[in-house]
Nucleic acid binder design. Structure first.
Lengths: 244, 244
DNA sequence: ACCTGCATGATTGTATACAATCTGGCTCGC
DNA sequence: GCGAGCCAGATTGTATACAATCATGCAGGT
């Protein structure tokens, strides 16, 4: 979540450099596929700057876990094994479940309205026509993030808000499978509505349970899709770097 | 936790630079107090390297949240408000509670022995004499980390293991208050024993409950101590912006 | 007296040059 | 024919120089 132009992790951290945000976005959106070797010189040319800010940005995304750094041997876009994805989603379920639990007692009317709007946008998108598949995924990701981010913000725990992007921001390439079928999207919308309802009622336990199930469902769909396609370089050996 | 010389956050990331680990340690151990402005040139001289690796390291600790970066105005060691500490400990309770829950079904005999040893070391330290207060705190921190890290490792969730240091690694300055009184240390040891017992029995729910209470207790003691001392720049509102 | 605007010093952001290290293939010796 | 050691290319790690940006203090006008 939170992949804004100045896309930052720590709630505030506005700066450092814009290169960081650009690189982060490129990785998350899949322009550099998992397993790709990131040579500093090449990135520098791609981004139109020198190696210095590139190195900076690489160090930062490495802390987030989006790339792996090998001493004296450079950076590689992190590949996620099956187990990695399971771990990430399990953890996310715990953390966002906790966020929903806390949000139940604190969420403001304005935030409830935001949730309502995001849920409605996602529902409306089922009838909407998009020029490209990519545009559609972008739309879905954006409003889905809005929904989840609003709940996280409503939890009132700044640390949680700052930390969750690191858990959630897995390359889009993986996540896009979540909405592969219309049926799955309908199920997802169903959970959004139920979560919203629980938050309105102030039912913390139920909000958590629903959120956790919502996330677990996302995990299962993702893993099934990956197993079917079996491409996408999920189990790709890191030694094999794609040149372009 | 995990403040080893090569101290890294991502489980693997061995390199990048050693400067990162050193800077990280300096901040965590309180050599640079919260609120201190970190001028690159000065750090470079302190660490005996040029500004380049220092910048690198600053970017990384900023992602972790140990320092705040202000564009064109440099870095400042992060100050923790009362609310920040509450948030961090709440989150830690959730995450480590989850770790304990999972560990209950998976922990190995070897890991149980490690826990036993760490708990025994902490208990023995009550009768032990230390040359300085600092040496004592170091000993306590080390074995306490060993205890907690073992459980986290036993949880079998790599992502959790990689992420927790970011939540837990708050400047030592704050944490050292946790063991201010002998009584508090005894209580802490009591919980270690009970947690160990629950893990041995494979009682996941109980392990989680005990771990959470253990952490909440740590939080309370810390906050009370801080309120009493009221020094330490906790509520320090330096010129820089508070969080949202 | 106070506010505005500029000059100056300090500090960050970027680029480039060079040293250290690794990878891969080749030769030489067995 | 085959393996150990070395040489060359590529790439990372570090240092230094320079440009861009910001804070501060002072002067001058209203």
């Amino acid at each position: 979540m939170q992949v804004e132009p100045g896309g930052v992790v720590e709630a505030e951290a506005p700066g450092g450099d814009a290169v960081y945000g650009r690189l982060r976005r490129l990785i998350i959106e899949g322009h550099y596929a998992p397993g790709t070797r990131l040579v500093e010189d090449r990135l520098a040319r791609d981004l139109g700057v020198s190696r210095t800010p590139v190195r900076q940005a690489l160090a930062r995304v490495a802390v987030e876990g989006l790339v792996q750094l090998f001493p004296n041997r450079g950076a590689v876009v992190r590949t996620f094994t099956h187990a990695d994805l399971v771990d990430a989603y399990d953890l996310r379920a715990v953390m966002e479940g906790y966020a929903a639990y806390r949000a139940a007692g604190r969420i403001s009317p304005g935030q409830l309205a935001d949730l309502e709007a995001a849920a409605a946008a996602l529902e409306g998108s089922l009838q909407q026509h998009f020029p490209t598949r990519q545009a559609e995924v972008h739309f879905l990701v954006e409003h889905n993030q809005r929904f989840h981010n609003t709940i996280i913000a409503a939890s009132g725990n700044a640390r949680l808000k700052a930390l969750l992007p690191v858990v959630v921001d897995v390359p889009l390439q993986y996540r896009s499978f979540n909405w592969y079928t219309r049926e799955e999207r309908a199920v997802s919308n169903f959970f959004h509505r139920r979560i919203l309802q629980a938050l309105r009622a102030g039912d913390a336990d139920r909000a958590r349970a629903l959120m956790q199930e919502h996330i677990y469902r996302g995990r299962d769909v993702l893993l099934e899709s990956l197993d079917e396609h079996a491409t996408t370089g999920v189990h790709q050996r890191s030694s094999e770097a794609q040149r372009d």
